[in-house]
Nucleic acid binder design. Structure first.
Lengths: 154, 154
DNA sequence: GCGTAATAGTTGATTTTGTAACTAACAATA
DNA sequence: TATTGTTAGTTACAAAATCAACTATTACGC
């Protein structure tokens, strides 16, 4: 006969707490902490998550190709392609074909794109500070370092 | 005249590192750390993320209504509804209408659902341990506590 | 150079999610 | 007991993500 089902999490023998399962917990924290910021870029500029990521990469690192953005942001090339298209449609960036390798093109923010980037960067900075305020600076530093490591496990 | 664009992150005055922005970093860590586990429930049982979440909730807490699952897992009711439908189609759970309030129905895992839950719970436990192995136990405890807090900021 | 493979990026079809409107059942109240 | 409001869950339609196939261009091996 099979052992009886034990719905109680405190049962011991095979204890497992879903709420502590790192992939689940990380997702919950990520979703929750993204919400407020998401509303800003969505309502203020009509952007999607893919779009602000591209915008931020161009804002931070300057001229990049779609390929480079995909690698740095870990976004699939179709996501990047579509995000770039929408940002180009709204005149947030310009595309310039590489003269030597005409397959790739260099992307750069327009002044409007720069302005949006600066605005959102400010919001991001404030928001990050607000999140960090829940902890000591040492704790936050450790958190970031652990997250970087988890993000890097390929 | 406007100040010149500064693509270099080390510029100081308005330093901002996207790679350290918590919502971004959390998302990266969550995505990366979910990948390997995702492959298991996907390849082994053809489940989606919404489905294993429902499965785990029923496995852990026993009989629940869709509403209760939605609240605990913070999933929108349409997501829960569709996940439940698919799990019911595959005979992983049964639905029983509440006699006193015929709007809601009680969900319970079938033996097949139980088996899948146990299997995946084992995988989850191992995987979580593998992730935790990158840090000291104190660090992991702090990480979980911080993530719980971030997830709870509503 | 010619044929084959690789790469940057786009497009199209399918799946999954998100949003809003809907049905059915219950609750409160005049 | 009608009336109005609320709740559990489903359905329909639009938005977005995924995956595979495609174009154009460059690189490689002979």
């Amino acid at each position: 006969m099979m052992t009886e089902k034990s719905p109680n999490p405190e049962t011991g023998e095979d204890s497992f707490d879903l709420a502590d399962f790192l992939p689940f917990l990380l997702n919950q924290a990520a979703e929750e902490s993204s919400l407020a910021f998401q509303n800003v870029y969505k309502n203020r500029y009509g952007m999607l998550r893919t779009e602000w990521r591209v915008l931020f990469h161009l804002g931070m690192y300057g001229r990049l190709t779609a390929k480079e953005i995909g690698t740095r942001a870990r976004m699939h090339k179709t996501k990047v392609s579509r995000a770039v298209q929408r940002l180009a449609d709204r005149r947030f960036l310009t595309r310039t074909r590489d003269a030597r390798d005409r397959r790739s093109e260099h992307l750069e923010l327009t002044p409007a794109g720069e302005a949006a980037y600066r605005d959102l960067r400010g919001v991001a900075r404030d928001y990050d500070a607000k999140l960090a305020r829940h902890f000591t600076s040492g704790e936050v530093a450790l958190l970031r370092s652990m997250l970087r490591q988890l993000a890097g496990i390929r």
